[in-house]
Structure formats: structure tokens, C-alpha cells
């Protein structure tokens, strides 16, 4: 009896959907990790994603090539990241204030551009999208093949990115330096690490990755841009980063968990559990994790503080 329930909620179809829902969160949370590990809070992820979603669509519209659109999203996200870096590193703007400004800006800018370029409100015209692919061999494996075998290439890109960020952070000297800058910038500076450059690069990369996450929505998952289409995913990514304790694999797990909640909400509604309470879960879990009830999540030490050379 109860077994049938479990199979209804946890099966290959739902898990494949969970992975699709998780993909934009994975990109943005990897961006969040890079930025915050360098000591810069990035609550502007939402705005960076939204910008990437729009620019990805716009570049695809003009080039008819969604892969070029993806690069456009990467670059435009990077530019927004640069703005955050200049504001917080160079001009010592409060990091939360700068992120807030970026989120508000992106919300206005994307609609402004949508109306100016296409003279439409709400939704852009349809553009090419990156088609899903079937991976030979992998898709023949029972169960796992049903989840992983037939996905969008951008989904695989997200999974590769997690491994790459992990290797970078914990197995390269550059990653070690980045973490040193976020934990103890003064000491890092003393041993000759350029704190400012490290933070600039980390925050620009953060924006670029968030931009990719946004573009996944507009030119891979769907094939158009809609006003505010990121719908708070930048903040869920932030939550995933915290819930995953600022580690790539932790954030991956949290992203998939939150993606699963998103994928399963409609089915839960059918059995009488209001979906709104399911949608709340990522945020509540994050608060619980921060409070230390399920293994305390502790941010990098120097986070939020601008660095000044002596």
C-alpha cells in the first residue's frame, strides 16, 4: 500500500524532472559558492540569472544559434558580476545593498529591453532552443538511464561544472588562494596573494555562472523569455549554497532536493498536501540549517567585509 505511494512520488520520471528543475539552481549556487568563498556575499544571483535568461534569448534571437546565446548569457552575467565586484571591492558598497540594487535593476532592465526591442509585454517571441539529447549506452541502463539518459546538454554541463568547481576549490593552488582570501584576507595578502584580483575574478565568474543558469530557463528548458521568469530561483540557489555548507557537492545535493520538491509539488497537491507548503520547504530548511539544528552551516569568515590594504 504505502509502497505504491512511494513509487508514485519517487520514480525515474519525477527524478528526471527534479534534475531539470535543479539545473538552474546548480549553476547559480556554484556561482554563489565562488563569490562567497572569496568573501563577497552575492544576493544578486537572482538578478544575474534574470539578465542571463534575457540576454541568452536575445542573442539566440539574432544569431538563431542557442549555443551562441549561451555564451551571450555567460558574458552578460559576467558583466553584472563585474558591476557587483566594482561596487563592493572597489567602492566598498555594502554587499547586500549592491546585490539588492542588482536584483531591482535586472527586473527593470529586462522588461525595459523586452518592450523596447520587441514591443511586447510579458513574453518574448519564441527562439531556437538547445534540444535534449539521448546519451548512447547510458540511456540503456535501467532506472539510471531513465533519469540521466535523455536530458538537455546543459543539464550535463551543470553536473560537470560541479566536479570542476570542486576540483578547483579543493585541489588547485588557485582554489586554495581563493579560500584563503575569503577566510583571512590579511594573511592572504601578507603571503603575496592579490586579494582584490581574486575577489574580482570570483565575483565575475559568479555572475557568469548565474547567467548560464538563467539561460537554461530561456533557451534550453523553454524557448522564450518571460518577465521575471527566474521567479526567485536565485534565492533558492542561495539557499542551496547555504544548505550545502558552501561546498559544490553539498550545493548539488541541496539543489536536487529543492528541485525534487518543485517536481513533486503537483503530485502532492493531488493527495491533498497543499503545494504551497512544499514550495516553502527549501527556505525553511535553510533557516533550520543556519540555526544549527541539522549540522550548523557556517559561512566563510571574512564574508561581508570589504578589504582594505594597510
Amino acid at each position: 500500500m504505502w509502497w505504491e505511494y512511494v513509487v508514485y512520488f519517487v520514480n525515474a520520471t519525477v527524478l528526471a524532472a527534479a534534475l531539470r528543475m535543479a539545473t538552474p539552481l546548480i549553476f547559480a549556487s556554484m556561482g554563489g559558492i565562488l563569490s562567497e568563498r572569496s568573501g563577497i556575499i552575492n544576493i544578486g544571483l537572482e538578478g544575474m540569472m534574470l539578465t542571463g535568461a534575457f540576454m541568452g534569448m536575445l542573442v539566440t534571437f539574432y544569431t538563431a544559434n542557442p549555443w551562441v546565446g549561451l555564451i551571450g548569457a555567460l558574458l552578460s552575467g559576467g558583466v553584472v558580476g563585474l558591476v557587483h565586484a566594482v561596487a563592493t571591492v572597489r567602492y566598498k558598497v555594502d554587499q547586500v545593498v549592491s546585490g539588492t540594487a542588482i536584483n531591482i535593476f535586472a527586473g527593470g532592465f529586462t522588461v525595459f529591453m523586452l518592450r523596447t526591442v520587441f514591443d511586447v509585454a510579458g513574453t518574448s517571441p519564441a527562439v531556437e532552443r538547445i534540444p535534449t539529447v539521448a546519451v548512447p549506452l547510458l540511456r540503456r541502463i535501467p532506472f539510471i538511464g531513465d533519469i540521466l539518459g535523455h536530458q538537455n546538454p546543459v543539464v550535463y554541463l551543470a553536473l560537470i561544472l560541479v566536479v570542476a568547481v570542486h576540483l578547483f576549490l579543493f585541489h588547485t593552488v588557485w582554489g586554495l588562494r581563493l579560500r584563503a582570501v575569503g577566510e583571512h584576507p590579511r594573511a592572504a595578502d601578507t603571503v603575496g596573494i592579490n586579494v582584490f584580483r581574486a575577489r574580482y575574478l570570483a565575483v565575475i565568474a559568479s555572475g557568469a555562472l548565474a547567467g548560464l543558469g538563467g539561460a537554461y530557463l530561456s533557451i534550453a528548458h523553454l524557448s522564450r523569455f518571460g518577465d521575471g521568469m527566474t521567479a526567485g530561483r536565485g534565492f533558492i540557489a542561495l539557499a542551496a549554497m547555504i544548505f550545502g555548507k558552501w561546498t559544490p557537492f553539498g550545493a548539488l545535493g541541496a539543489s536536487i532536493l529543492f528541485g525534487f520538491a518543485d517536481a513533486v509539488q503537483m503530485r502532492l497537491q493531488e493527495v491533498g498536501i497543499p503545494r504551497h507548503f512544499v514550495l516553502m520547504l527549501p527556505y525553511i530548511l535553510t533557516m533550520v540549517a543556519l540555526a544549527g539544528f541539522i549540522g550548523r552551516a557556517t559561512p566563510p569568515k571574512s564574508i561581508g567585509k570589504p578589504y582594505e590594504k594597510e
Partner: peptide, 22 residues
């Protein structure tokens, strides 16, 4: 001019006020 211009202006004001050094 789309009304979203004022949203852009509001965001700019936040950023500039906080960047008092600039």
C-alpha cells in the same frame, strides 16, 4: 519610454547612495 525606466533609476539611486565615495 517604458515605465520600467523608473525601476532602473531606483536601482541606480540605491547603488550610488551606497557608493558615497564615488
Amino acid at each position: 519610454v517604458p515605465r520600467e525606466l523608473v525601476v532602473i533609476i531606483q536601482a541606480m539611486i540605491i547603488m550610488f547612495v551606497a557608493a558615497d565615495e564615488l
